[in-house]
């Protein structure tokens, strides 16, 4: 069962990544990227890393992708904007695919977080200590073992901002 679920989401993930490259319109590519991020989140969930999976959805599939789409819409007023970008495959498979994907995801989420057991009054599996990817374990790793890499990332972000300022400024 676990393997079958993994194969489904891995296939969706790789398919989304290939579609991302194959699409001509940037918005279509961005939407494919959401599929990739979403299925990656499900793979994390299958590995027992529910916190990472949630963060993946909130940060990547949510915040980062919104930013991507904004940037594309603001900057890409070029030829691509005027070309029609509806694909027939997407029209046919889009809604059924989405429903199936969400259905499987909902089932996995309810199984792994123990929501189904709570609903029928069984014991919850969410006691936290035996789970590898719970917030406590992630926090321990991030602020103990990987404290220095975590802090040094701030310099990386600082120079990235400096780079954006330097390269975007108009020279007179």
């Amino acid at each position: 069962m676990h393997l079958a679920l993994f194969l489904i989401f891995a296939a969706v993930c790789v398919g989304g990544a290939i579609n991302l490259l194959a699409q001509k319109h940037p918005i279509n590519s961005a939407l494919s990227l959401i599929v990739v991020m979403g299925s990656l989140a499900m793979i994390y969930l299958l590995l027992g890393a529910e916190f990472v999976a949630a963060v993946q959805v909130i940060v990547y599939a949510g915040a980062v992708m919104v930013l991507f789409v904004f940037v594309i819409m603001l900057l890409n007023a070029g030829v691509e904007e005027r070309t029609p970008h509806a694909s027939r495959v997407a029209t046919l498979l889009g809604v059924p695919g989405l429903i199936i994907g969400l259905g499987i995801s909902a089932w996995v989420v309810s199984r792994i977080t123990g929501l189904d057991k709570i609903a029928i009054g069984g014991p919850s599996v969410m006691n936290g200590s035996d789970v590898f990817g719970n917030p406590q374990a992630v926090g321990q790793l991030l602020f103990r073992d990987y404290l220095l890499p975590f802090e040094v990332t701030s310099i990386l972000i600082l120079i990235a901002i400096m780079g954006a300022v330097v390269l975007a400024r108009r020279e007179e």
Partner: peptide, 8 residues
């Protein structure tokens, strides 16, 4: 860090 600063 070293790469991105040299790119810029």
């Amino acid at each position: 860090i070293s790469s991105i600063s040299t790119y810029i």
